[in-house]
């Protein structure tokens, strides 16, 4: 990389379109969020593992008015490649205002109960891989005293439940990591936002009973865009999940262990 490019990349962006790096850009929630940013003229760097889907998303966002759209195909489980991928992304954006981490898998709870490899895979994708990405991104932002790291965790991480505790524990780990990271870097001028969606109508929940009653990803996206703009620390979305999870967290374990949740 030339010194000019390094200098450019080092400049925090104060005016002009927002520069946003999206990891897991083919996710239902991510795509809905990017549509809002695109209509505001943002510059986007999109990463996803499926090239065909990624191309369709990128084309849509260009048409909607994104001022810049670049893409990279990557399996984010491949943590070895993260440093190369991320430095390519921020160079291509010539800086970064927001990193939005959205990828994740629900996994098969029943199978995970029998097979550790399944469990390990869920923990790797939902916890280890984001931690690897965040380690690089946090240091990049701290150097510049600028940027927001917006990361999708889940209400499922607030308390382990029999129906999805493997997924839940991966998100619990992620939420705890984000809380600690915030405590470390907020004072450096870097915002860390933990996003905890409740059940949302996306590919991840398709076919689940009552999924037609789940939150609309466009409404979820709107709240996420607003929370990032307001430099919030944490977002329960839809907001009703904040009081619900408060109650769920306070149920004593001796009662909780008997519930079918």
């Amino acid at each position: 990389m030339s010194t000019v490019a390094t200098a450019l990349a080092a400049q925090p962006n104060t005016s002009g379109p927002k520069k946003i790096l999206v990891l897991g850009a083919t996710s239902g929630i991510a795509e809905a969020t990017c549509r809002i940013w695109a209509s505001q003229g943002a510059a986007l760097f999109l990463v996803a593992r499926n090239a065909e889907k990624l191309a369709a998303v990128a084309q849509d966002l260009r048409t909607r008015g994104a001022s810049f759209v670049e893409t990279a195909v990557a399996d984010l489980d491949d943590t070895e490649q993260h440093a190369t991928l991320l430095s390519h992304a921020v160079n291509s954006l010539t800086g970064m205002d927001i990193a939005y981490l959205t990828h994740g898998v629900l996994g098969d709870q029943a199978q995970a109960e029998q097979d550790f490899n399944t469990t390990a895979h869920i923990l790797y994708t939902n916890f280890i891989a984001p931690v690897s990405l965040l380690t690089w991104l946090a240091n990049y932002c701290v150097q510049r005293h600028h940027g927001t790291l917006a990361v999708i965790s889940s209400v499922a991480g607030d308390r382990g439940r029999r129906s999805n505790y493997v997924y839940g524990s991966s998100k619990a780990g992620l939420s705890a990591f984000l809380a600690g990271l915030r405590n470390r870097i907020d004072r450096e001028g870097v915002t860390v936002l933990t996003i905890k969606p409740g059940p949302t109508r996306t590919a991840m929940t398709a076919g689940m009973p009552k999924s037609e009653k789940f939150a609309d990803p466009n409404a979820v996206a709107k709240s996420i865009v607003a929370a990032i703009a307001a430099k919030k620390d944490q977002l329960y979305v839809p907001f009703i999940w904040a009081p619900i999870m408060l109650v769920i967290r306070t149920i004593p374990e001796r009662v909780f262990k008997k519930l079918n949740l």
Partner: peptide, 19 residues
């Protein structure tokens, strides 16, 4: 209905291509 992406829009002709 999940296939709802834009593909192109030409403000000269008004041609809008979408899924």
């Amino acid at each position: 209905t999940g296939m709802n992406r834009l593909i192109s829009f030409d403000p000269e002709t008004g041609d809008l291509t979408a899924e």
